[in-house]
Design a protein around this nucleic acid. Sequence first.
DNA 1: AACGATATATATCAATTCGATATATGTTTA
DNA 2: TAAACATATATCGAATTGATATATATCGTT
Lengths: 185, 185
Amino acid sequence: MQLKTLCLGLLEMGDATGYDIKQMFERSLNHFHAASYGSIYPALKQLEQEGHVRSRLETGGHHPGKRLFSLTEQGHAHFIESLTGTEPDENIRSEFLVLMFFSHLLETAVLEQKLDRMEARYNNKLEILGPLLDQKHTAGIRFTIEFGISVMTAKRDFIRKHRDKLLSDHKEPPHSKALPVEKQR
Amino acid sequence: MQLKTLCLGLLEMGDATGYDIKQMFERSLNHFHAASYGSIYPALKQLEQEGHVRSRLETGGHHPGKRLFSLTEQGHAHFIESLTGTEPDENIRSEFLVLMFFSHLLETAVLEQKLDRMEARYNNKLEILGPLLDQKHTAGIRFTIEFGISVMTAKRDFIRKHRDKLLSDHKEPPHSKALPVEKQR
DNA sequence: AACGATATATATCAATTCGATATATGTTTA
DNA sequence: TAAACATATATCGAATTGATATATATCGTT
């Protein structure tokens, strides 16, 4: 699924600027689909050329030139069609697991740091997701939040469960210079 | 972490061709980091220019011109440094959760299909990961497999747990034409 | 009232990666 | 012996990231 399709979907919820769309990503979709300004603005521009959205410049005390986008009838139809035709799937890119894959090449102290930082990161993400449950949502949006919490908890608990044994069984790699861990940024 | 770094890491395990590296990705890293030929070959070329790997053309009955890459001392040092400096993190891109986010716009029959297909997909992935546990691995590689199984199971079970209520509470979207589900590819 | 920090808002661009396509040879199977 | 499959490399347009630049509005503090 392209970002263009997702922007269309977010415009189903009401008119919005590129900035608003970025906010929506950060507030509600970040744990399963991030997007940058560098892709959102070009996507909106293309969608307008294709007739899926319309835009108007907001006048009145506003910033540089606030451009408010709205979905066209055609854009709505196209979104529903795309959504219906999208195969459910997911893509993972885990630098953490890459680190673990090569952990026999890391010093014990470094490995410990990686595990602890990843656990902390999962905890941070859980602290962000938790409060979202207090708001009202459609059943589908609630599903995405609860799914996220459930999966993130499983990941954090997996690290917690294996951490100690992993570290006590771990052997220093050959040629280890045992540099102080603090050297890293 | 760039793909170049990962290729360096895989060459720590022994000399390999671009094709071999692609195989390693598919056999061992696919569930947390995929890579395509279109990025592997250019990565190896660049690594050679940077002096991190060396290559020699294999002669003798072989295919087009089998090019075997091996890590240099410099490449090894660079890999360890990159690895040590990599922040543990992960990136998710879930089209499944996008589908769920907008599920109020899907017909019930379509939603049902999406949920069932995603559950099936998780089951397929689990069937691939399971047998990997029978082989010998470093503790770190075993960790990545068990982590994958554990998380994938949590995801599948989450779908199973919520599926029925989600479907029975679901309302047909406005303007639904109730097209037969089979129309989709 | 003035100042600095933060939030709102858009735009651009090099670098990275995907995914599809093309090409060619070796090996296994029916 | 032919077809199907596995081995092997290369290329390229398109999508996306992440960094950077620019400008105005608003809020908090002294």
